[in-house]
Design a protein around this nucleic acid. Structure first.
Length: 466
RNA sequence: GGUGCCAUCGCCAAGUGGUAAGGCCGCAGCCUGCAAAGCUGCUAUCCCCAGUUCAAAUCUGGGUGGCACCUCCA
């Protein structure tokens, strides 16, 4: 398997530290608002990664955190006159529901900041003991970036002299502009947690380092985790700071491989709430099957920037439809347990830094070839069983085609409408039988008006929601 | 200003030295009462210029045009 390392900036052969075992940590959401398409993209990318790693025989331990301590959460709680926990529980539940709709498997470990405070304060203490952190007169604890010779080695940023010399306003009492908070003292009576450094709240960067240490790191390994992932925006300062905290408080570096997924834009513009509906995942899920969104968001390579628009989304839906039509065509067939060339090629393509485009090309070629053979004559038992195995592998690796194919084509249709359509189809077939094509075509137009397409086959007339 | 990424058919998008995958759209055809679905065929020399090489979309240099990060952000 090959993985592009966004710190070394090249594709590297993947080798976990411990034979056959992979530890993966991904920065998850701050639960103060509904998830947007960018959250979906990130979750989807690392879901795919874990599937491919597992298919390659690795035993993967995947952790993705939930940030439930944050100023934005507190602000929202105040605005809505609710407790912090009400807010975080609500958005955590919503996040899970939406990820489920996208077919994103749950991580093995999902640590929360509120449940990691001991790990965090322990890490701060270590950093203070080793002179990598200092306490200010106001009770804040800052990481001393000047004490870490490797600071900025991750993002390869150059700190200019001006910045280095800068003495920040006396109120913050930071030694260096780049220094970041490990613990913020809070005296205004709002939410605080106890710590040896006084009441306050942990700095945001800290939780990931602490959680990794607590849940994934092996004491004697050179790297705390094999792979660390997240959105491209997190490389600096978030991951830079995480890396600094870990290397200065323990005897290992944070991660051997770094993976950063590209950003999602909407119609060429950076996402913002002013753009309205499609910003939130929950709204997109009202309009489209979660699996269509999954297919679409994964169809572009994870490192590229992604430009969300309905035209491309429709093209993706049509591609997914083809998988489901083949599933309908072979519905009920047994599945071969023999290895197929297709499965090997699929895994090979995905193992090349998640080359989804090459993978989708393989899938389309497989579908076309199968349909072509099926069109020519009846039998082909072996082909059918092999194809069922191929489709099952596509489900396992990519999560495409996991639904009942008949139900898939009914997305968003209520019972009453379905009954109306079925009734019209019976009427149309009667007209067809009587060779009254004028009536039957008129009835078809009525059916099409429901936003469906219909197809006459030797086995009867079927319809699909477009 | 600093750091970095990108530029392939109308649209989406692979391909990182050996002569341009795949999908959507479009056109022609098979099938069909007609359609739909499915299948077949057709559609690019890779932003520009110069260079390296037997050979470049792929390497180098210079342009031009996008974009991201540097502040909370997936």
């Amino acid at each position: 398997m090959q993985i592009y390392d966004s710190v070394q900036k090249n594709k590297r052969d993947f080798k976990p530290q411990e034979e056959g075992k992979v530890s993966l940590y991904v920065c998850g959401p701050t639960v103060y608002d509904d998830a947007h398409l960018g959250h979906a993209k990130s979750a989807l990318v690392f879901d795919l990664l874990t599937r491919v790693l597992r298919a390659n025989g690795y035993e993967v331990t995947y952790a993705r955190n939930i940030t439930d301590i944050d100023d934005k959460i507190i602000k929202k709680a105040h605005e809505q006159n609710k407790s912090i926990k009400e807010i975080t529980d609500f958005y955590t539940l919503a996040f899970h529901k939406e990820m489920d709709a996208l077919g994103v498997s749950r991580p093995d470990i999902e640590p929360k900041a509120t449940e990691s405070l001991t790990a965090m304060t322990q890490m701060i203490q270590k950093l203070i003991d080793t002179k990598h952190a200092y306490l200010t007169d106001e009770g804040d604890v800052y990481f001393d970036t000047a004490s870490d010779v490797d600071y900025l080695s991750l993002s390869k940023r150059v700190q200019n002299e001006e910045e280095r010399q800068e003495r920040v306003e006396s109120s913050t009492l930071k030694k260096n502009a780049a220094d970041f908070a490990l613990w913020k003292s809070v005296k205004d009576g709002s939410l605080t947690y106890d710590s040896p450094f006084g009441a306050g709240r942990p700095g945001w960067h800290l939780e990931c380092s602490a959680m990794i240490e607590k849940h994934l790191a092996k004491p004697n390994a050179a790297f705390a985790v094999d792979i660390h992932g997240g959105g491209a925006d997190l490389l600096f300062p978030h991951h830079e700071n995480e890396a600094a905290q870990t290397r200065c408080s323990s005897n290992h570096a944070l991660a051997n491989y770094w993976m950063h997924n590209g950003f999602v834009n909407i119609d060429g513009e950076k996402m913002s709430k002013s753009l309205g509906n499609s910003f939130f995942l929950k709204d997109a899920l009202k309009e489209y099957d979660g699996e269509v969104l999954r297919f679409y968001l994964l169809s572009t390579h994870y490192r590229s920037n992604f430009n969300f628009n309905t035209e491309d989304l429709t093209a993706s839906k049509k591609r997914l439809d083809k998988i489901y039509r083949l599933k309908k065509r072979l519905f009920g067939m047994a599945e071969s347990h023999e290895p197929t060339a297709f499965k090997a090629e699929l895994l090979k393509a995905l193992s090349d830094d998640l080359n989804v485009s090459a993978t989708l090309a393989l899938i389309d070629e497989m579908i076309t070839k199968t349909n072509e053979t099926l069109d020519t004559s009846g039998k082909h038992k072996e082909l059918k069983q092999g194809t069922m195995a191929n489709l099952a592998y596509i489900e396992e690796l990519l999560g495409f085609g996991v639904k009942n194919p008949f139900e898939y084509f009914l997305f968003g249709m209520d019972e009453a409408t379905k009954e109306k359509i079925d009734a019209l189809i019976i009427k149309r077939n009667e007209a067809k039988k009587a060779k009254d094509f004028e009536s039957s075509d008129k009835l078809r137009d009525e059916i099409l008006a429901f936003g469906v397409s219909i197809m006459d086959t030797p086995n009867g007339t079927f319809w699909e929601k477009i």
